[in-house]
């Protein structure tokens, strides 16, 4: 078992937070996790992205391609569409991205995070909708694991709304 994930967006979209939450949930299951934030050149222009490797044995923090990539903005979409492994999943924030992917060898999930978040909680919870979708795709941690992390990491007043958003993202494909 090994999973390589990239979360990419712009500052304030919570991509690093999502990465940390997935790592926390996975490490509670006894798995090795490595989170590498993008910084330096990549950080200029407001880019905020991180790469997560989850595996039974300690793996390479540098990855060739990712199993799952979440893109929160158009620039990330442009940069990362080509980095998804064949048969992997690209999760697209369709609230902010109007482009259509060219790849036909990957699964694409276009999800309007902001609209869903506004519907079940507030627009600020868009990243938890995204986290829900990622968790569902990974098949490494289940919804309850993710909920426990959200409950532990968030301020108590925000937990309920964020868990609703997380659930909505997780169940998106059942809509």
């Amino acid at each position: 078992m090994k999973s390589e994930i990239i979360f990419s967006g712009i500052g304030g979209q919570g991509t690093i937070l999502m990465g940390k939450m997935v790592c926390t949930a996975a490490s509670k299951k006894g798995l090795n996790v490595t989170l590498s934030p993008a910084y330096g050149q990549e950080k200029r222009g407001g880019r905020a992205s991180c790469q997560v490797v989850i595996s039974e044995e300690m793996g390479s923090p540098i990855i060739s391609e990712a199993d799952t990539i979440l893109v929160m903005d158009e620039k990330s979409f442009d940069d990362y569409e080509g980095k998804v492994k064949a048969g992997g999943t690209l999760i697209v924030n369709s609230s902010m991205i109007n482009k259509k992917p060219n790849r036909t060898d990957i699964k694409v999930m276009e999800i309007p995070f902001t609209e869903i978040a506004t519907e079940v909680a507030t627009a600020r919870s868009a990243n938890m909708v995204a986290l829900g979708a990622v968790v569902k795709t990974l098949h490494i941690v289940d919804l309850d694991d993710a909920k426990a992390v959200v409950a532990a990491k968030m301020k108590p007043a925000l937990v309920e709304a964020n868990i609703k958003a997380l659930e909505a993202g997780y169940h998106f494909d059942e809509r």
């Binding site: 940390k20 996790v33 490595t34």
Partner: peptide, 10 residues
């Protein structure tokens, strides 16, 4: 190095 410095692991 810059990679290990910024990386997060258990």
């Amino acid at each position: 190095d810059g990679t290990l410095a910024k990386m997060m692991e258990n």
